[in-house]
Design a protein around this nucleic acid. Structure first.
Length: 362
DNA sequence: AAGTCGTGGAC
DNA sequence: TGTCCAAGACT
């Protein structure tokens, strides 16, 4: 069915649709490759609506590549705080330094150079180069995968057909209008060809779409098999010293929430009470002894691959010199200073609870 | 090559 | 309340 149509026909109808119904997004008002790069990184696995305020604040604080490259990582992470997937911020920072080193601070315009920057894969490289320089490079993000899977009636989960999807994306690319085409295809996926209840009657490709013609649009793309999420119980310590300061630690640079600050703690073992867990973890990780006091708050938080319940207790520092055994760094800080440090979301809720108690007592 | 890596919105 | 999933990259 769909083989009978010429690619040029699809491209023309998509472009006409885009000119009427495309989204007005902040990063479409510029061709500055740096600004577009920032937007592409922030948009990875993150909704447009979430990104927009971060995007504006970022460009205000880091208006160009040298400014970003010369800023301390802690400030960079503070600007990223709340966006998640913090490796994106660390990679963006490293990549900025590489652009300064290797390209005199000018963002490269060659695909292989862009692709070699940390945090930039094939889709992001194509997105940047097509948007900033109108280069004819295809993309394959979540939107495009879904659109193409429905278009051809893909009978497997997209992950299993990634090579075919790239081929198709390449073949369909409008080489005369690559910037418009890529943006249009993503908008189509985001606003018409949505995961649930797609608006097929409004779609410029409805006549060519296998899924719509077969009424399979709610079954394609096929779902990836999902695995159950483990749930961990965590004991967390808000440790106070006699100066009215609390102890925080900076997590290791790599891995989950790398480089962010947190209140120390750890997993509750089988048949272990929460106070016992907290005392043990603090001894193991920081080498100090504490007394566990009042319960502060209990929080549930969902990550991508597991869930946690944080059981947070006020604690009193007793003895020993804190040492960064399983973290990068340790500090005693006054509660009002906590806002200066980048924390993961679950920990900002703990901070709110501390400040609320603090203010209601004082 | 399957697992890892955050958070919020939508339903 | 749970589930899906959003402009993916890296290991």
């Amino acid at each position: 069915m769909w083989q009978g149509w010429e690619v040029e026909t699809w491209d023309r109808s998509l472009r006409e649709w885009y000119q009427r119904h495309g989204r007005a997004l902040p990063w479409r008002k510029t061709t500055d490759p740096y600004a577009i790069w920032v937007s592409e990184i922030m948009l990875q696995q993150t909704q447009v609506k979430t990104v927009i305020p971060y995007y504006y604040r970022w460009l205000e604080r880091f208006p160009d590549i040298p400014t970003l490259a010369n800023s301390p990582l802690q400030l960079v992470l503070k600007q990223w705080e709340g966006l998640g997937y913090y490796a994106r911020a660390r990679n963006l920072h490293r990549a900025a330094q590489k652009v300064v080193e290797d390209y005199q601070g000018v963002f490269p315009d060659r695909f292989s150079d862009v692709l070699s920057l940390p945090g930039i894969g094939r889709t992001t490289a194509g997105g940047i180069l097509s948007a900033a320089f109108n280069q004819p490079i295809s993309i394959l993000d979540g939107n495009v995968k879904r659109v193409l899977a429905r278009l051809v009636g893909l009978k497997t989960p997209p992950k299993k057909a990634i090579n075919q999807l790239w081929e198709l994306s390449d073949r369909l690319l409008d080489r005369d209008h690559p910037r418009e085409y890529n943006q249009a295809l993503m908008d189509l996926g985001a606003t018409i060809c949505t995961p649930k209840q797609p608006s097929c009657l409004l779609c410029p490709w409805r006549d060519f779409c296998y899924a719509f013609q077969s009424n399979l649009q709610t079954q394609i793309p096929m779902r990836e098999p999902s695995t159950p999420l483990p749930h961990k119980q965590i004991g967390v310590a808000v440790i106070w010293n006699d100066q009215g300061e609390v102890l925080i630690d900076r997590r290791l640079e790599e891995g989950l929430l790398g480089g962010l600050w947190e209140f120390p703690g750890g997993k509750i073992e089988a048949n272990e009470t929460i106070p016992d867990c907290i005392k043990r973890e603090i001894k193991e990780e920081l080498g100090i002894s504490i007394e566990v006091g009042d319960h502060l708050i209990t929080l549930n938080h969902a990550y991508t691959h597991f869930r946690v319940t944080l059981n947070v207790y006020h604690c009193r520092y007793l003895a020993g010199e804190p040492q960064p055994i399983e973290c990068e760094e340790i500090r005693w800080v006054k509660p009002e200073q906590l806002s200066q440090f980048p924390f993961p979301k679950a920990n900002t809720k703990i901070i709110d609870a501390i400040l609320n108690q603090f203010n209601s007592i004082v």
